[in-house]
């Protein structure tokens, strides 16, 4: 830390509490704002073209389509907060999706037990990532790239061709096609996040993302925290894999591949800092919904769907650049 010129004390002039809340959550606020704007734009286009407001069907399908990404993004957020990155997301989703297609059968209890085991399998994948990153002191990006390949291979081994079938009851429970009940799971996830944020573990995750050496000097067990973060991430991707299986009512060992990159996009749009220590899973959930809304908007704008990724990519860059700019303005150049 270079010495800087001593500044005079700023006296008792304090910014109001609200100013702090805004300044410190600017990423989240921007994510919510972009999401709101995209919903408004979408609704407006919908009204113009369909002469009615988007109804239960539109909301339900949007929510159900976004659930896997939202869950994956929460997991990615926790890893990114530790100043890591997880590219194995797609592999975990592939594998758990395939496992679900094979083993989810029978009665309620059987399905419940299988679901828990599948989530644990995701946790084991995350644990392995965490152990290698932590003990090997290797760069997360290459470690998780390697485990991505392994998990993709395992997934195809489990389910060589798309297939299997998910019992209708399971689908109805996770992704009710008649009402956006999946929002309850999201609310649960957000609640879980708020608990995490207020737990010792949450503080440790943020601390090592802020400054690992300082955190260690403050008594944070950096190694353990990292391992747990990757493990939680893996479990959340597994839940995403279950949702994906439920909404597709079947399994596909490659269906998760896209989620590696889209989860990073969602995290970035959600205002989570890729260099760790700053961000919120609620923002990442918003980020996931923004990506879905953009697809919806492009559809209603009659944009040739072939150009979809062009607009998504452009939007991502613009959002990141302007997000950084606005963040700097709000913080007053500090």
């Amino acid at each position: 830390m270079p010495p800087e010129a001593a500044e005079p004390p700023r006296g008792r002039t304090r910014r109001p509490v609200l100013a702090h809340v805004v300044g410190q959550n600017i990423g989240l606020i921007l994510a919510v704002a972009i999401l709101s704007a995209s919903i408004v734009i979408f609704a407006a286009m919908f009204v113009v073209q369909q002469d009615r407001l988007p109804g239960s069907f539109e909301i339900t399908s949007t929510v159900n389509n976004t659930m896997p990404l939202a869950l994956a993004a929460i997991g990615q957020t926790i890893v990114v907060l530790t100043r890591g990155i997880d590219l194995s997301v797609g592999g975990v989703i592939d594998l758990t999706n395939a496992l679900a297609a094979i083993f989810l059968t029978g009665g309620v209890w059987h399905m419940a037990v299988v679901s828990v085991l599948i989530v644990l399998a995701g946790g084991v994948a995350g644990l392995i990532n965490g152990l290698i990153v932590g003990f090997g002191r290797l760069q997360p990006i290459v470690v998780t790239l390697a485990t991505l390949s392994i998990l993709q291979g395992l997934a195809i081994r489990v389910l060589p061709t798309p297939g299997g079938s998910i019992p209708a009851g399971y689908t109805a429970f996770l992704v009710n096609t008649n009402a956006p009940t999946a929002l309850c799971f999201l609310a649960l996830a957000a609640l879980g996040w708020m608990g995490f944020r207020r737990s010792r573990l949450g503080v440790d995750v943020f601390a090592i993302g802020n400054d690992e050496q300082a955190a260690i000097a403050l008594g944070v067990k950096a190694l353990r925290t990292k391992i747990i973060a990757y493990t939680i991430g893996g479990m959340l991707y597994a839940v995403a894999g279950l949702f994906l299986a439920a909404s597709a009512t079947g399994g596909d060992a490659t269906t998760g591949d896209d989620y590696t990159l889209t989860s990073i996009v969602a995290v970035v749009l959600g205002g989570v800092n890729l260099f760790g220590g700053r961000g919120s899973a609620v923002g990442a959930i918003c980020g996931a919904f923004i990506t879905t809304m953009i697809v919806n908007i492009l559809f209603f704008a009659h944009i040739n769907p072939l150009y979809q990724s062009f607009y998504e990519g452009l939007f991502l860059v613009i959002a990141v650049v302007f997000g950084a700019l606005i963040g700097r303005l709000v913080r007053g150049g500090r």
Binding site: I141, I264, V268, V317, V320, V321
Partner: peptide
């Protein structure tokens, strides 16, 4: 523009794909 390399090149991939 200060965009992290991961994000910038990921977005570029999408732009070119589109």
């Amino acid at each position: 523009l200060g965009v992290p390399a991961v994000v910038m090149t990921l977005a570029m991939n999408g732009i070119i794909e589109g």
